[in-house]
Amino acid sequence: MDAVVSGIVLAGLYALVGQGLVLTFVTTRTLNFASGELLAVGGFLALGVGSWSWLPTPGKLAVVVLVGGALGAVVHRWLVLPFARGEHDSRWLLSTVGISYVLLNLFTNGEGANPQRVELTRNPGTVEVLGVGVNKQSLVIAVIAVVVTLALVAASRWTSGGVIMRAVAEDPRTVALMGISPRLVGAVAYAAATALAALAGVLWASEVGATPGLGVHVLVSAFAVAVIGGLTSFWGPLVGAVVFGVVVQVSAYELGALWGQVAGLALVIVVLVLRPEGLVGRRMEAKL
């Protein structure tokens, strides 16, 4: 029971970042490999705005999320669009990996590589869930991940923006003929995805401190959960994260801490072999 509960709680962080990957994939068929460093941007922005005593915490959080969103739009305009000009153009992969290294080096040179304490959304201590002690901060992140997932699912089904997003995913050319700009939809998706990464960055940095490498480990797991759940469904990251988190924790409890992550990544391979579209995704062609 301990392993299952802690696995589910652990899943929240990965699901939140994984949602960003799904957002960009369903709208542009591209993935942002700099998501981990953009998550670190959230952590460092939290350090910066943390000293603005005139602004209440929700305001500070909003600033971080908005700046993160703006950065996402910039990444889409200058690092994705010029390098995704056709079905077989996958230079965006190199450009997003490239900017991740640039950001990593900028942070290391500018801020140093040692962790810095972030207080903005810190929830220290533990709380009991079903008789199991869980970390408060991880629980907060898990709750936010569920809310974000429900909001994205609802928006994609019952709002005009969601319908446009799904239409762009199905057939961007026809959508363009109807006067809707797939580029704009892509920019909005990147902005939203990066805003989510920045939000995850604030929340996670409040737990472990802000470092340039804050997102490196998180991104690997976020990719894993997006693949397990499916890159074409907003339910995918949440379902994938729960399955991944439980497998990781159960393996770690039963076999030893080091085996947890190994088991989680082995699960990714199993899913890719048996159900490449993911547990709740649907099969579609991609230009990866």
């Binding site: 392993a3 490196v216 480990h217 797991s221 030893g256």
Partner: peptide, 17 residues
């Protein structure tokens, strides 16, 4: 004896063991 990977996000399983 339990090992921790640098940067691990959660070590509750190791401590539980």
């Amino acid at each position: 004896v339990e090992a921790i990977q640098p940067g691990t996000t959660d070590f509750s399983a190791g401590i539980s063991r």
